[in-house]
Each structure stands twice: as C-alpha cells, then as structure tokens.
Amino acid sequence: MQTNAEAVDTPLDSALSKTKDPQYRMVNRIMCLHNYQPDALIETLHAAQDSFGCITLETMRYISHMLHLPLSRVYAVATFYHYFTLKPPGKHRCVLCMGTACYIAGAESIEKAITEKHHISPGETTSDGEISLLTARCLGSCGLAPAAIFDDKVMGQLTPKNVLKQLQDWRDHVADT
C-alpha cells in the first residue's frame, strides 16, 4: 500500500491541464471517440499504457474523473489485466518463458537465480531502473527451451549463468560503451 505522496490537487484543475496536454493526446482522443462513456475504460487504459509505458496514479485519477468512474474501479481494472503496468518499465526487458517446454527445461531455476541476484520477481524492475523482468507462457520457440526474450532478441538454451551474464552486462552498460 503506498501513501499518497503526490498531493491530491483538485481534480478539476489537473483535469483541465491534461485535456490540453499533448502527452495525453491519445488518451483524450480515445475518451472523446467513446463519448466519455464509462465503458471506454479499458480502451482508455490501453491508450495510457501505450503513451506512457505504464499507468500512473495521476493518470488513473484523470481517467476516473473524465469517465465518471470510481477511483477504486479504475485501479481494480488496471491491476486485473497483466497487460497494464503501474510502474515505469526498465530500460531493458527480459521476458522469461514459463511455458511447458521451458519450464521442464529449467526456467524456474533461471527465475530463481535472477531473483536472488537482482532482487526482482516477475513484473518488477530493478531499483536502478535498468531491467524489467517479465514472464510469458510459451514464446513459440519451444525447440530452444529454455528460452527468453532479451529486449527484442529471442535466445534459447539458456542457463542461469548465461542469463545472469546478459543481465549484468545490461547493468554495467557493456553494450552502450
């Protein structure tokens, strides 16, 4: 449970500023297209996720205000679907496959190794904002099991060791230099 650090500015002021904010263009467009009907919530959350890479509390407050929905309902829907994330994504993304083939081939020990070394569980991002760990159910590359996607590259025959090396390289900015 987070304490509400960002002060609750009056909904009207903050809503007014966001209706003109170019960053909110897609979000506003979708809400307008649906005539600000409450049932446009999921489409609007999609637009917010696509525009910002995550859905912040401030965005949820805005959407709740504009679509006349309870705050708790917006939060409930945003946390129900795995597609939406509430925290900003890391710079790099590792999607570990937990499908049947990969699971049998040892995906779990890889996950454990990552959690131990980098202190992140699936769905979380390292505190330095470098790496987000996600999981998937079958990437369609079962022949490569255990497989994972590192940023946009699918890699297979993974072991805890070579996965940890890749993640360490990201944190050490090996590719950037």
Partner: peptide
C-alpha cells in the same frame, strides 16, 4: 454510492482496496 472499495489484482493476489490502493484515511471517496 461512494464506491470506495474494489477488488484489485486477480486470483490468489486479489485484495480489497480503497480508492487507488490507499490507506483508508486517505480515501477521499
């Protein structure tokens, strides 16, 4: 008519939470 509570997350992680998962005291609704 306040709709302060809702069930957030899903499955085994489901929780009842107030407003934007805030402490009750801070739930403006």
């Amino acid at each position: 008519g306040a709709h302060t509570w809702d069930i957030i997350h899903r499955g085994i992680k489901s929780r009842v939470s107030a407003d934007l998962n805030q402490p009750w005291k801070e739930a403006v609704t």
